[in-house]
Design a protein around this nucleic acid. Structure first.
Lengths: 231, 231
DNA sequence: CGGGGGTAGTGTCACCCTGACGAGAATTTC
DNA sequence: GAAATTCTCGTCAGGGTGACACTACCCCCG
């Protein structure tokens, strides 16, 4: 029984918010199996690596984030997937990670093998990646309630409206701007005011904020209970 | 790089509440490495198994829970652990699971190689099991806030006080019995009254309840914010 | 240059949930 | 029976939230 050996890979659910919509980074597979179909970016664990090392390495390789290895976003482990038939090549265990990045401009020459896709439009993916993506999105939705993860979707300086649009895109709901502003600005450690303001757009200039030191939200930002299955 | 192969095991953090205290199931290792020290129960993934299969099989084997494979408790995946040096025998990836069971009487002949230990008294464990245990306990603490996990610590029929003692033991706090009773009995789907009462003990007999269909708590049962690590 | 439209932020108010109790109900123990 | 113990309901003040009126400030356009 101990003789069962697995290839171990890391798959990434890389999320961002663009155009008020949740996007995921996908790559087009250039080898079998599932050649030509879209899948999650990932790779195998190298001989001297721990799982977070592999995840960070793949994230930098796929996005060019933080050339010096210091990733400005968020990276957390999701879960392990090891169904016996999930990879036709043999037993492959994949540890999925959730990564969250601010929206970044596409590279000058658009990459045909790697790109951002609206999560709502993704239908089929290679392997069990559709399930992994669903788990990752659900994790992000929950984490937004209890932590300051939403700020990881935003650039270093952002407005309250930017932050609200993150919640609205990930939760697919609408939030009252006034109550939202009161809530996030009164939560200690969530936002640090810069006393600078955005310019150029219509309407009153919004104040720019920076991420604060808090990681958990007290009290939580509770969304409406999911549609109750009436007993 | 793809040639790196791992042995894949499942380790269990099996928790219960006994004597108003949180207990974890440990086994004494009978082979190297770490021979003679305590560790988490676990085993390797068989050739045709998925991870939850292995976890359920090991849980039944170690506790005798649900002879027919139907486990009455709670079983969820925690995380994967794969540090290069976590096992001196080579590269071993372990997927940890959190299991929660009601307190059960010890078998007639006490088992010297497997037993329940107060979590607070556990100091050193084999491999990285101390870290896994800490992660499992923290997960249980958080899950108690937002789900009905606490009922999984209780036998099929239990009183509000039984449930409160679960929260107090896992969180290591005291909760006002009157407010707690109001909260859990008014949360729809959490508790189903049986209209039967316990007998024998001192004081007014308490009503017996059964687990309800709800899995998530709305609104959540928020504990005090953890002591903030002041930056 | 002065409205009009649009966005940001403040203020108000009612409602619900919660923590902090008081008090009564039902049983065991002395 | 009286005291002790435990369960359960009730009350009340304070905080957080949803709903929304209103003010502040900018761009655009005539």
């Amino acid at each position: 029984m101990r003789g069962n050996l697995f290839a171990v890979g890391v798959d990434l659910v890389v999320l961002t918010v663009r155009n008020d919509e949740l996007y995921v980074l996908l790559v087009r597979r250039d080898e079998k199996p599932f050649e030509g179909t879209w899948g999650l970016p990932g790779g195998f664990v190298a001989s001297d690596e721990d799982l977070p090392d592999t995840a960070a390495r793949e994230l930098v390789a796929q996005t060019g984030t933080g050339t010096a290895g210091r990733v400005s976003g968020h990276l957390e482990q999701l879960a392990g997937y090891a169904a016996p038939d999930r990879d036709p090549r043999g037993r492959v265990l994949s540890v999925a990670f959730l990564a969250v990045l601010p929206d970044m401009p596409d590279p000058d020459q658009p990459d045909v093998v790697s790109g951002w896709h609206p999560v709502a439009d993704v239908t089929e993916l290679a392997f069990d990646h559709a399930q992994i993506l669903a788990d990752g999105v659900e994790r992000a939705r929950e984490t937004l309630e209890y932590t300051t993860l939403a700020a990881a979707f935003c650039p270093p300086e952002f407005t309250v409206t930017d932050l609200r649009r993150v919640y609205e895109a990930v939760w697919r709901t609408e939030i009252d701007p006034r109550n939202f502003s009161r809530k996030v600005t009164s939560t200690p450690g969530f936002l640090v005011p810069t006393h600078r303001h955005v310019t150029g757009g219509p309407g009153r200039p919004a104040q720019l904020f920076r991420r604060g030191p808090a990681t958990r939200l007290h009290p939580a930002m509770l969304r409406e209970p999911a549609v109750r299955v009436v007993g």
